[in-house]
Design a binder for these strands. Structure first.
Lengths: 193, 193
DNA sequence: CTATTTATGTATCAATCATTACAAAAATAA
DNA sequence: TTATTTTTGTAATGATTGATACATAAATAG
């Protein structure tokens, strides 16, 4: 292959940019912020990502979708998928303060991008719906197996969990406190049993 | 009183500005947006609000706190305060699409302003905590009166309601749909009974 | 009337915004 | 070697940002 060698790998730029977007959101993150965080100058940046800021944001979001897909694969292999989901919620309490304050980049994006960017908004909403769908499907199966006593429909319980996910996205900023969050999570998970 | 008469009333500027902030958030709202929405030019704007954009945003938030205080007064006078709170949640489902997409300006601010403006962030968090406290106090009283069967502590149930409030702030953007939201709200309120 | 006061509208400010232009650097192919 | 290709760093772009300067308008006080 010809040409000057790349020193700023695409995946690395996205990773570094993701952290900034995650903390500051889309609008408040400037190109200057991204250049500082990634080390790449405007030349490299726009040479790599013709779509500029928005393309990098999309890729950062896409990276999160992959993490979700990985979890969904774990879930498919698991013989106690409900416990896996519950442990996923329980693990929130164990996060450090920065993670609490950052919250979920997808849920943040839904809140931020309404009336700002229809495209980014719809994409984030879609991802949350897929997570919800994963919850719903798991609950449906477990109900059939008799592993859940609740007679509430899996659709409503699935929405209950995604609502909880979005709710705790704010609660953990109000109380970035392990003990408080732990108790709260256990109480809410008890509804699915 | 001497001087040219005011044609852009403070309260009216704040009201118009609030709608823009509510839809677009703080960062994405420009002075140009505010001038278009309020009709006031830069002269009037900065003559009235020396603190500029941030001062107007603070006042817009403060206006919401007053709305909350009014509700709290209603609650104090009510002889079925728990029903009043539940009806408040139920009324969310009746809102129009624009209201769904706007969500709660306080919850939105908590999500947006983390790592952006410590001052605005802390202020919004404080308001949510006051709402939570109102939930908690009401639940405590109603539990003592025997109007709530649940033995879960009022602190946890109060946090459950504020978490629900923040969660539905996102859910209503995913599903700005009366029927879906209504079912979801009823299911979640059933926990407090 | 004149002086004073306050609000308004417009022009302008420096700073920052996202993006582009372009020459130099650094590799490979021939 | 030389030509070609790609990345990089820097300078510059025009647009927009939040905010200020200032002359004028429009009222009241004396």
């Amino acid at each position: 292959m010809r040409g000057r060698p790349t020193i700023y790998e695409d995946s690395n730029i996205i990773k570094k940019a993701q952290e900034v977007f995650w903390q500051k959101g889309y609008s408040a993150t400037s190109l200057s912020d991204l250049q500082k965080a990634t080390g790449a100058g405007a030349g490299s940046f726009y040479n790599t990502f013709k779509g500029g800021k928005k393309e990098v944001f999309k890729k950062a979001i896409e990276e999160r979708r992959l993490a979700f897909d990985a979890f969904k694969n774990e879930l498919a292999k698991s013989d106690s998928p409900l416990e896996l989901i519950k442990d996923f919620f329980r693990s929130i309490a164990e996060a450090d303060t920065n993670e609490h304050l950052k919250g979920c980049i997808i849920a943040n994006t839904v809140v931020e991008m309404t009336y700002i960017d229809e495209d980014l908004e719809a994409n984030a909403v879609q991802i949350l719906k897929e997570v919800e769908q994963m919850f719903t499907a798991t609950i449906k199966t477990e109900q059939t197996k008799g592993n859940i006593q609740s007679k509430t429909s899996p659709e409503i319980l699935g929405k209950y969990l995604i609502t909880f996910w979005c709710g705790i996205n704010t609660l953990r900023r109000m109380y970035p406190d392990k003990k408080i969050l732990k108790d709260q999570i256990e109480m809410q998970l008890a509804v699915i049993s």
